[in-house]
Design a binder for these strands. Structure first.
Lengths: 153, 153
DNA sequence: CCTCCAAATAGAAATAACTTCTATTTATAT
DNA sequence: ATATAAATAGAAGTTATTTCTATTTGGAGG
C-alpha cells in the first residue's frame, strides 16, 4: 500500500479515503473490475458515492500508473492493478477473472514492421488459471457474446 | 469474393446487395472500419440504409468468420477482414489510422505462463506508417484521451 | 492548530454507441 | 411462381460513460 501512496503523491494526487478504498479493493481481490463493480463494492462504506466519481478515480489511477486498462470485448472498461513500473503485460483467467502480470515480453519494439516505426504495443493473454483448471468444468463463469478477445489459437 | 460468398452460404446467410457491398468495402480498402464508417460509405448506393442494419450485418459477418473484431481503446467496435484462417495480428498507424496485418506471431501459445493454460492472445502494435513519417509532424491526427493502448516502450 | 486553495466530490443532465422492436420487404429453396 | 425464413427500415430504448456546476476537503504553508 505504501508504494501506491507514493505513486499517488508522485502524480500530484491526494490520498482521499475513496481513492485508498478503491486501491484496497484491487489489492485485496487481485482481479480486474469495471467501474460499476467498484461502485457496488463501495456502497457499504461510501453510501453517497456516485458512478461519475468512480470513473474519475479509475482514470486518475491509470494516469499515475497504479491501474491499467484491460481489454474485453464487452463494451465496458475494465481495470486491473499495474504492479510494476517496468514494461510488462497481462494474463487474465477467463473463468474467475484473475489478472497476473507477464514479466518477460517477447515483442521486439526495435524491429521495423511493414515500414512502420513502432511506438507501443499491447499484449493480452487469456487462459485458465491453475485453480480454475482443477474446479468442476460446468462451474464456468458465463461470459456474454463477443466477450473474448480475438486470435484464438 | 467467391470465398466470402461460400462462407456466407455455409453460415446460412443470404447474399444480399447490402452484405456484398459491405464485404466489398473491406476488400477494397484493406483496413478496419467502425459501423459508422461503413454506414457513411454506404450512403451513396443505399440511401435508405440505417445504422442498425449495418450493426446487424457486421455481427453476422463476424459470426460466419468473414470479419474479425479489432480492439481499440476508444469505446467503438472496429471490424476488419479476417483474411486468413491463419493466425495473425494488427499494426495500426497512430496518425492516419491505417491497419496492416502482422503475419508472423512471436507469441508461443504452448508455453505455460504462471500456471495458466493459454486459450487465446491478442497483440496490437501501434506505430507511425511510412507515409505519415514523411508528412509534416505538426499535422498529427488528434486522438482522444485513452485512445492509445498501454505499455509504451 | 488554522487557513487557504487546488483538487476532489456529488448529483443531475448530456452524450455516444449501440440494441431492440414491429412492420414490411426480399432472397432463395421448392 | 410461390412460400417462407431471413433481411431490412425506422423509431424507440438501453447502457456505459462524460460533462457540468456547485460544494466540500486534503494537505502545504503560516
Amino acid at each position: 500500500m505504501e508504494r501506491y501512496c507514493n505513486k499517488l503523491k508522485a502524480g500530484g494526487l491526494k490520498l482521499t479515503p475513496r481513492r485508498l478504498a478503491i486501491i484496497g479493493l484491487f489489492v485485496d481481490h487481485n482481479t480486474h473490475f469495471t467501474a460499476e463493480d467498484i461502485w457496488s463494492r463501495l456502497q457499504k462504506r461510501f453510501s453517497r458515492c456516485g458512478l461519475p466519481g468512480v470513473y474519475r478515480n479509475l482514470e486518475s489511477l491509470v494516469e499515475c500508473g497504479i491501474l491499467t486498462r484491460i481489454q474485453q470485448f464487452d463494451r465496458k472498461k475494465h481495470y486491473g492493478l499495474c504492479a510494476g513500473s517496468h514494461h510488462h503485460h497481462h494474463i487474465t483467467c477467463i473463468r474467475c477473472g484473475k489478472v497476473d502480470n507477464i514479466e518477460d515480453c517477447a515483442f521486439d519494439s526495435a524491429k521495423k514492421i511493414k515500414g512502420y516505426t513502432v511506438v507501443s504495443h499491447f499484449i493480452q493473454v487469456n487462459g485458465v488459471c491453475g485453480g480454475c483448471a482443477k474446479a468442476a468444468p460446468h462451474r464456468d463463469r458465463v461470459w456474454g457474446k463477443g466477450m473474448f478477445v480475438c486470435s484464438e489459437k
